[in-house]
């Protein structure tokens, strides 16, 4: 019989990487300089690639003819289980960079645990993805430092981005029901994560906000209004022409 928790957790990992990949992909052709246009697209390719691995695994679990695409294209926003952080708008380069950094620093720690998971497939996907995530973390950390410690204008934009995004960082550490028996210790991740983020923000001459209200819901399908628009665009062809091969 299918393990519902494992299935939902797999979808959660898939949805989170897909939505961030989709967001980053919107920079392709619009980046601040060609080299970085290419860099962020590489990250997007990595993330969407990861989401496919997770969706494919979910499909084998479900074993009812579901495919990576039926999960990505035919579920509604209430069924999506991604973290709220990744669906937040691209905003400017500062906001995109910070979103990437806050996520990659978390994902890096999560996948370090996940690669030793008792579920061999999740472990294998995590192990393979970890190499990519290590680079995402390095790249986004350096950009956070550059922008924080760059010009007054860039620093102000980083401050604004922190205000916008920080309230969405708490959710990652609160396990959803399906997450509880996955062998992941979110509390220990939280501690190391906060230290890493504090170190980088400090080097960027920025500060970690304190006593901020944290939004939750994404993991259980209660999203911000952003997600509906993302999915409308992402799913448009499959929903307009149902049942076709592409």
């Amino acid at each position: 019989m299918m393990n519902n928790n494992l299935f939902n957790y797999t979808l959660h990992l898939a949805d989170t990487t897909l939505i961030l990949g989709q967001r980053n992909a919107a920079w392709c052709g619009h980046g601040p300089v060609l080299e970085q246009d290419i860099a962020i697209t590489n990250i997007s390719l990595d993330l969407i690639g990861q989401s496919r691995s997770f969706y494919q695994y979910a499909a084998t679990q479900k074993a009812d003819g579901s495919t990576e695409d039926s999960f990505a294209y035919l579920r509604s926003e209430r069924e999506f289980k991604n973290c709220l952080l990744v669906e937040q708008p691209n905003g400017d380069w500062a906001q995109t960079i910070l979103r990437q950094f806050l996520f990659s620093s978390f994902q890096h720690l999560l996948f370090q645990q996940l690669q030793n998971n008792k579920d061999a497939t999740l472990a294998a996907i995590a192990e393979k993805s970890l190499k990519e995530v290590t680079y995402h973390l390095r790249w986004s950390s350096e950009w956070v430092i550059r922008l924080g410690d760059g010009t007054e204008e860039s620093r102000n934009k980083m401050l604004k981005a922190i205000t916008e995004l920080w309230p969405f960082t708490g959710e990652q550490f609160i396990p959803a029901t399906y997450e509880e028996n996955m062998g992941i210790n979110l509390l220990s991740i939280k501690e190391v994560w906060l230290k890493k983020v504090t170190d980088i923000l400090t080097e960027a001459t920025l500060q970690v906000p304190e006593n901020i209200f944290m939004h939750t819901g994404g993991k259980n399908g209660i999203h911000t209004e952003q997600l509906g628009f993302i999915l409308t665009e992402l799913q448009y062809i499959q929903k307009t022409y149902p049942g076709c091969e592409w």
Partner: peptide
């Protein structure tokens, strides 16, 4: 060739641009 602000970034940009 490519543009970068410093050597570290130049290596990363080279990785992204020339080793895809």
């Amino acid at each position: 060739s490519l543009h970068a602000t410093d050597a570290k970034m130049a290596i990363e940009n080279a990785r992204d641009v020339y080793t895809r």
